[in-house]
Design a protein around this nucleic acid. Structure first.
Lengths: 137, 137
DNA sequence: TTCCATGCAAAGGGTTTGCACTCTC
DNA sequence: GAGAGTGCAAACCCTTTGCATGGAA
């Protein structure tokens, strides 16, 4: 249940320079109303609830577009599927592969020290930290 | 070109409690002769060079087995494919998505400080750090 | 009206599975 | 000889693509 209004979502899209369509508005409301971690398929299912005639292709197109516009971040934590994170501020993750549960860890709380100097001609894109946990035996 | 002999590979497998087969020996020689990062398909191609009648299923079975026995570590850095790392000691990675180039960063060089306390009932499995880089514009 | 966005279905690529055959022990 | 390991091909799942239709500006 998105907490963002259609008007707010519309403004957000315009502000990002993204032409507004019904599907994009609804995906915005689902994904960008608050901090969430959703797979493409979860977005697809969620969108279907409000706009039944939405295709997977549109969901994938939109997610790719949102990533290019830095509205979401792609998390590569599981080989099965990509997860989209609505929190684009620097932060890290705690991941439970058994449950699929993903939790944010703030960049104030956790820090990476001793970053190696990069080979010439390369620049830093981002640093991912994934704390993998499991149920205690 | 593996630098490990068949005898060495055989001993390594026995030491890990893995029943010895020709395919496992050859995959061991390819993957565990030194520090490498290989995808399942790269292992498949490499094995075909020495044992042409090897199937993909066997490669995937063997890689899964090796991971369970902690002979290799799975790296989830790219949604396209899983990479197998023959270095099972704690260390981190620098990754260039454009070239696919993956470089080890030692755990002495780089450290993660401020690890959050884990929710009760959970235990740490491992910490992945991926430094994503790209060509400078 | 002119494009860009969308829906649909098929294709694609990595990985897994089912089953019969083969080899190790 | 018994059971695990293997090869083959089909199946699977996530994601992408091609193309014709539909909608935004």
């Amino acid at each position: 249940m998105p907490t963002m209004s259609v008007k707010q979502a519309t403004e957000l899209l315009r502000g990002a320079g993204i032409p507004v369509t019904l599907q994009r508005v609804e995906i915005t409301r689902l994904l960008l109303s608050g901090p969430v971690h959703l797979s493409a398929d979860q977005v697809f299912s969620g969108i279907r609830a409000s706009v039944p005639a939405t295709s997977r292709a549109t969901v994938y197109n939109t997610l790719k577009l949102f990533r290019e516009k830095n509205l979401v971040r792609e998390l590569i934590v599981d080989p099965e599927r990509v997860v989209y994170d609505s929190n684009t501020a620097p932060h890290y993750h705690l991941y439970n592969a058994e449950s699929g549960q993903l939790t944010d860890v703030s960049a104030e709380e956790l820090q990476v020290v001793g970053m190696p100097s990069l080979p010439p001609g390369l620049e830093l894109e981002e640093v991912d930290v994934i704390i993998r946990v499991r149920k205690r035996d």
